[in-house]
Amino acid sequence: MSPAMIEGFLFGLIAVMTLAGALAAALLRNLVHCALSLTVTFAGLAVLYLSLGAQFVGLSQILVYIGAVAILVVFAILLTHGAGALPHLFVASSGWRTGWVAAVVVAFVFIGALLRSPLPQSSGPVPQIAVRSIGQALMGAYVLPLEIVAILLTVALIGAVIVAMPTEQGESK
């Protein structure tokens, strides 16, 4: 087996894992199972980022999505009694047929478009990006987006707390 074949095999494995997680999230009845299969997708994506040489983004993906977003989702599910309640007889919304048709059409359009377009087929070596240079870029050319993201996150934090805060006195924990 050549290294390229091993690489392709591993890529296929990770890609199938990623997509299977997303598919399970789409089809499973139990909400917590959906959330857990979603973490498989997030982890698979992180591995894909790592394989593309984006080490910092891949690790951030694990930290943010598995460490925070997935936990947030399961907490929300438990707080809204989505896990304990009997699953609905029908978990799909009223327009689910149209929804799946739309999704399949979108998938075909995307894949058709990218198979027809001229894409760079070969690439150089995996770029070695030091964390230091990411930091310098964030503090240099990208300082304005960084500040805006900082404000956005602060606003989101305060906003989420205020929105989810119980309003009536009787509801306070």
Binding site: L36, F56, I62, L63, I66, G67, L78
Partner: peptide, 25 residues
């Protein structure tokens, strides 16, 4: 010996939380 080692440790540590949730739930 990776460049973002500390980040790796914290990212992996975050996974442990999920497994604890899995156990309890």
């Amino acid at each position: 010996n990776i460049d973002a080692g500390i980040l790796f440790f914290f990212a992996i540590g975050a996974t442990a939380e999920l497994s604890i949730f899995m156990a309890g739930w």
